[in-house]
Nucleic acid binder design. Structure first.
Length: 974
RNA sequence: GCCGAAGUGGCGGAAUGGCAGACGCGUCGGAUUCAAAAUCCGAUGGGGGUAAACCCCGUGCGGGUUCGAGUCCCGCCUUCGGUACCA
């Protein structure tokens, strides 16, 4: 009795595909190709834990798309690779002494085995790892492109895509050098260039994580001031770091997002991350210490003729505001503690307090900063500035709620119309002047931040906010006191890490005679790429920001240039993002030793037609990739402005749903906190889930604060009450019903290996697609897996004779013409499955195939042609089973490139259809009418129906709604 | 606080403004079996009614548009995800 045996079928076909190179993608399309399709998965980090059930979700979705597209005659590129640099392998090395390379390639082998076991149709001949030396070569080459260019914000040009743009990355050699720099000589010129490169060094306060021994990007630090990886504390330190000038591309990253076929949510995340705001810069003149504003001060007036300077003078405090209309309400100013003007303006009396505050805030970690968000702090500098619109003397404070890195690092504070300023003003008892009247008279203008009408604003009184903004910005520009300004929340990308297991920078530092760096740098010559990692066996962080590579062998670390200059290598390494920024390009031409990608191949394959992966990369990876892509585009290496045309986020797969009840954790805790009657109770009392809250990782009862323990409850111990589940024994105790994220600590992790072993790869693939919509978060269910496994068994028995000794065709399958009814079911199924695949609605496609199977399993004879066509529909989802049965049906070839079945609309038509009849919108009857009946015929048929007639009896028909083929609705009165 | 997504049976989920709950799980009943597993058949939103016919209620809550609303509009509530002094 040959049963459906996945464990023999699946390895058989995997071996067949590998031997026959079924899924290798030739560079040239086959004759008559229906066009190219590039479908990409976000390649995984090959962690030591192996594949997680989340991986096959997106991978199955793309695999279905690709297999379907091959049946449609498309030239499909479907590659896989490894994002293999990263912390865990290095931490493993520190612990065990195993070289990160060994760990990494071992893990890659595991991942490859697991993915191949799932039957994905990747072209494995294109496999790449970001850690391969040839790959590192081109990652470093791209870095050099960035290093060797600058951004010209005013350059107008038309790209290969025919779009006109302003602003372009250009070769550094094209950077105009001002005469005063030129006159200072070669060193000055080089410094001038270095400051303007797309890859540049900066000495800035950065997020230093002692536990990880590295600096982290802002993006890698959580709101709580912890590292995203590992949750270790992060502190601020001033260090020399490599930065990438992503901010130069802010406007294009924002604008060119619009036409992409991406989820609106991801676009909006990126928009918020870029954070464009439009406002004005305004100059306030600082008064000399002890001096009052007086008529002899002509500085304001002089600006009318001198105009608005590009850089503010020493006696000017320049602020950025999105609300220039509230200038009349600016009662004080605040500068960031790091602001350079502080030293110039602070008065003798305030100096000590200011210095003390600056010291404190410099050491503040991000954690402290957010903690202090509740209460504003700051110190008065003793200095005043002149409000340009009314000459009012405005005190200047320093406070760390103003950030040096945004805008000009200084603000005008309008406490009446800004929450933060109001809080600060209230703390320090500063004046609050309302200058915006809310549209609703009853609303208090103090604390009102929305648009309204100007008050207390001199001649501008009565002007609506939007108009006022434009007007005063123009007026200030006229007087040379301000101008319109745009700001972005986006910061330059901190690109260096202090780790061993990453790409080395292709950079040399020049040394002086004493071996000290001169500050001059040069790129490694392209012919010397790649810069490979030196062999080392000590990877441990030293607790100092000296990278592990600074302990590399001398031969790696130093060399003497042709011109005799002594050089030392850059010892920072690149972040993990570097490799993933451009891997989608390399897949098109993975073995090219002359270039990172052949331009013809780039033109042919790009952009990626569909990119599927987790939402956790919505901002970082996708923004970084787009940035690199645009820079390479500007430099003429790429022909399309965007890398990923369509993006889909797969939803997270949670663990199996759990029921949790809570009860008092221990006797002592409850006996003194709760009522007497409970104290005598032997059983520790349950607490309704509604009264439970989480504090510091502990569950506690809301009112009493008593510590609780969570208890897993069985299905049969609860009952449904309203919207809640409650204990059967005590209906007042609400039980929490929820699926949690899979985690080792919770013990709810599902291992794909186990599923494949017990149910097979086809069942795992099918189940993950059947769970629900791809984009949605959904809980795992073991009995759901059994459900689809049973379905596969039904498909097997529909085609195979399970009474026979060996695998033979089911005798019900005959070479006969399908009946009209069979044809209808078949063509309905073809239509539905085809359309569902195109919509990526895989769960409903599977439902349709189940319906087909339910229908045809009961039929005898079963036409062979219908069976063959059905197998093609099933094959993208369950390729192993489909291939096996395809063979059983007598086909000798693989079905991988067989033509997709076509449906015939004519065969979908039924001769008679059932139509609902409503009376006043309520369903009253169903009638059968010939297909294609017109409204009149339908109405007549409806009226002729007995129960409809009864409903209409003695009533007046006001209106009849008749939609041919859909329904009849009588609107009646009386 | 702000931004985004979502609320439909016991559960996962289906429904171009037109028969709510396709399909699967679970449950119940039956067939097969010495028995079980596997498999097959049937029932299954809630309430009333006689296990029929039939009737009433039902897509988070409250309004609205419409002959007709799970679907569109307005206002709330809840959950999940992201974000956080960005002037």
């Amino acid at each position: 009795m040959p049963r459906y045996d996945h464990s023999s079928i699946e390895p058989k076909w995997q071996a067949f595909w590998a031997e026959n190179r079924t899924f290798e993608t030739p560079d040239q399309p086959k004759e008559g190709s229906a066009g190219k399709l590039y479908v990409l998965d976000m390649f995984p980090y090959p962690s030591g834990d192996g594949l997680h059930v989340g991986h096959p979700e997106g991978y199955t979705a793309t695999d279905i798309m690709c297999r379907y597209a091959r049946h449609q005659g498309k030239h499909v590129l479907h590659p896989m690779g490894w994002d293999a640099f990263g912390l865990p392998a290095e931490q493993h090395a520190i612990k065990t002494g195993t070289h990160p390379r060994d760990t990494t390639y071992k893990n890659i082998d595991t991942f490859r085995r697991q993915l191949q076991m799932l039957g994905f149709s990747y072209d494995w001949s294109r496999e790449i790892s970001t850690t391969d030396e040839e790959y590192v070569h081109w990652t470093q080459w791209i870095f050099l492109q960035l290093f060797n260019s600058w951004f010209d914000p005013t350059f107008e040009w038309t790209g290969p895509d025919g779009v006109k743009r302003t602003g372009k990355a250009r070769p550094i050699a094209d950077l105009p050098i001002p005469d005063d720099v030129k006159s200072q000589g070669e060193t000055a010129i080089r410094s001038y260039q270095d400051e303007r490169r797309l890859a540049y060094q900066s000495e800035a306060p950065v997020n230093w994580c002692p536990a990880l021994g590295t600096v982290l990007a802002n993006e890698e630090v959580t709101a709580e001031g912890k590292s995203e990886r590992g949750n270790h504390p992060v502190e601020r330190r001033k260090l020399r770091q490599w930065m990438l000038r992503i901010t130069a591309f802010a406007e294009r990253l924002l604008n060119e997002l619009e036409p992409l076929d991406w989820p609106e949510s991801v676009k909006s995340l990126q928009r918020n991350w870029i954070g464009k705001s439009i406002g004005a810069e305004v100059d306030f003149f600082v008064l000399e210490p002890g001096k009052k504003a007086d008529a002899s001060d002509k500085r304001l007036d002089q600006r009318a003729s001198s105009g608005y300077p590009a850089k503010p003078g020493d006696d000017v405090l320049r602020v950025y505001t999105t609300r220039p209309d509230t200038l009349f309400g600016a009662t004080y100013m605040v500068v960031a503690p790091e602001h350079p003007i502080v030293d110039r303006i602070v008065t003798a009396e305030q100096k000590e307090a200011v210095e003390e505050y600056r010291r404190k805030s410099a050491n503040k970690t991000d954690l402290d900063r957010t903690d202090l968000a509740k209460e504003k702090t700051g110190v008065f500098t003793g200095a005043y500035a002149l409000n340009p619109v009314n000459g009012a003397e405005t005190p200047i404070w320093i406070a760390d709620y103003v950030l040096m890195s945004y805008g000009t690092g200084a603000i005008m504070a309008v406490p009446a119309h800004d929450e933060r300023d109001l809080e600060f003003a209230q703390t320090f008892d500063l004046p609050v002047i309302p200058v915006v009247q809310p549209p609703d008279e009853k609303t208090d203008p103090i604390g009102f931040t929305d648009p309204g009408t100007a008050v207390n604003s001199g001649d501008y009184d009565g002007t609506p906010t939007a108009e006022f903004k434009k007007k005063i910005t123009a007026d200030l520009a006229q007087l040379g006191l301000g101008r319109e300004a745009v700001n972005y929340r986006l910061r330059d990308w901190l690109f260096s890490r202090q780790r061993y297991w990453g790409e080395p920078f292709p950079i040399w530092h020049e040394l002086d005679a004493d071996g000290n760096p001169t500050g001059m740098i040069r790129g490694v010559d392209e012919s010397e790429l790649p810069v490979t990692l030196p062999d080392m066996d000590d990877f441990a962080p030293k607790g100092t920001p000296d990278p592990p590579l600074s302990a590399a062998p001398e031969s790696w670390l130093y060399k003497t240039a042709a011109d005799g200059t002594r050089l030392r290598r850059e010892t920072n390494s690149m972040p993990q993002w570097a490799g993933s920024c451009w891997y989608y390009l390399r897949f098109c031409d993975p073995k090219n030793t002359e270039a990172f990608i052949d331009p013809e191949k780039e033109k042919y394959w790009l952009p990626v037609d569909c990119y599927i992966g987790g939402a956790e990369h919505a901002v970082l990876h996708l923004l970084y990739s787009r940035f690199w892509h645009k820079a390479l585009f500007d430099l003429g290496h790429l022909s399309k402005p965007e890398p990923f045309q369509k993006l889909v986020n797969q939803g997270m797969i949670l663990g199996e749903a759990e029921l949790t009840a809570y009860r008092i954790a221990d006797e002592s805790a409850y006996s003194d906190k709760r009522d007497e009657k409970f104290a005598t109770d032997l059983q520790r009392p349950w607490v309704s889930a509604r009264n439970v809250t989480e504090e510091d990782g502990q569950y506690v009862e809301k009112e009493t604060g008593a510590v609780l323990e969570a208890v897993m409850i069985d299905n049969d111990q609860v009952t449904k009450k309203g919207n809640d589940f409650v204990l059967k024994d005590d209906a007042s105790i609400v039980v929490e019903s929820r699926a949690h994220k899979m985690s080792k600590s919770r013990g709810n992790v599902i291992n794909p290996d186990d599923i494949v072993k017990n149910y097979g790869a086809d069942a795992l693939r099918l189940y993950e697609m059947f769970m629900g919509p791809l984009e949605q978060t959904k809980p795992w269910s073991m009995s759901g897996v059994e459900g689809v496994y049973r379905f596969l068994g039904r498909v097997w028995r529909m085609m195979v004779d399970d009474a026979a000794e060996s695998v033979t065709l089911n005798p019900a399958i005959k070479d006969v013409e399908p009946t009209e009814a069979q044809d209808r079911v078949l063509h309905k199924t073809i239509k539905a499955v085809t359309e569902d695949i195109e919509k990526l609605s895989f769960n409903t496609a599977i439902s349709r195939m189940m319906e087909f199977t339910n229908e045809f399993s009961g039929q005898n004879p079963r036409p062979k042609s219908a069976m063959s066509q059905f197998l093609l529909l099933l094959s993208p989802f369950a390729p192993h089973l489909a291939e096996e049965l395809w063979q059983v049906l007598g086909h000798s070839d693989s079905l991988a490139y067989a033509a997709w079945p076509k449906f015939d609309e004519a065969k979908l038509v039924e001769s008679e259809i059932e139509i609902p009849v409503q009376v006043n919108g309520k369903l009253r009857a169903k009638i059968k009418v010939p297909a294609g009946s017109d409204a009149k015929a339908m109405e007549a048929a409806a009226k002729a129906d007995e129960s409809v007639a009864a409903q209409l009896e003695g009533k007046q028909i006001v209106k009849t709604v008749c939609i041919p083929g859909r329904l009849v609705n009588f609107v009646v009165k009386g």
